[in-house]
Amino acid sequence: MSLSASDFAFVAGLVRRESAIVLAPGKEYLVEARLLPVARQAGAGSVADYLGTLQRRPDPAAHRSVVDALTTNETSWFRDREPFSALTDVVVPHLVGTRAAARSVRVWSAACSSGQEPYSLAITLQQALPAGWRYQIHATDISTEMIKRASAGEFSQVEVNRGLPVQLLVNHFTRSGTGWKVAPALRENVTFQQLNLTAPLPALASFDVIFLRNVLIYFDVETKRSVLRNICKLLRPDGWLFLGAAETTIGVDEGFERVAVGRTSAYRPRATVPAGTLGKG
């Protein structure tokens, strides 16, 4: 039982159109395995049957399930740790100086997956901000399924094991069913919204810090560039952008400048880039 070339092309096209994620040939086994539960759920006998029906009768809800099943949602608490230490050690102290009038900080988790990133940010800010300060974390993802899960704030044993120090588990979560639920004191500072980074962005108030981590890697260079341009418009001119460990704006979008923060680096908008200038400014 193996996926035909035309079925694979159909799926790859769909995923690429809806999420800009590229599924290279050779991933047939992955497509087949990931779609099997989706096909069974829909009552189809096999993945081929399911895709056959879908090609004859397009169905936006089913398209979403296919895209969801094939996007990688891999994430963990305090992923790579250094960006979170940098917030505590460098970014928060700086913001406490520059945002003293408002006493509030706004952070965007722009590909939040199942929610570990925005709640890790919430724990970090809760601990690092002085008393009397408020913070809001806006968490978005293309996947409605991920947004639903993240906003429920419930995590399995397998998930809480990954990178969450046990003392923070005990302090900020309570047991619920077979897993754990995030405490209301954190949950109430986090908002969730379904959002496709590669489509025109909705109007959002600007942010002091943007986490755009481990999502650019899935896009081609043109898509990366346009995502970074759009994101930059939502970042305060003195704000910080954090990317994944394997990602950079360098050579993609010269509107950002890389700066060292703690033991990692972040990106800050350049003051102004003369029109037509690409490469080193």
């Binding site: 963990s76 044993q157 397998v158 809480v160 094991n161 990954r162 990178g163 046990v166 588990l169």
Partner: peptide
């Protein structure tokens, strides 16, 4: 503290 089941990554 690691709760079973756990992954190798965890």
């Amino acid at each position: 503290y690691v709760i079973k089941p756990f992954t190798a990554e965890a």
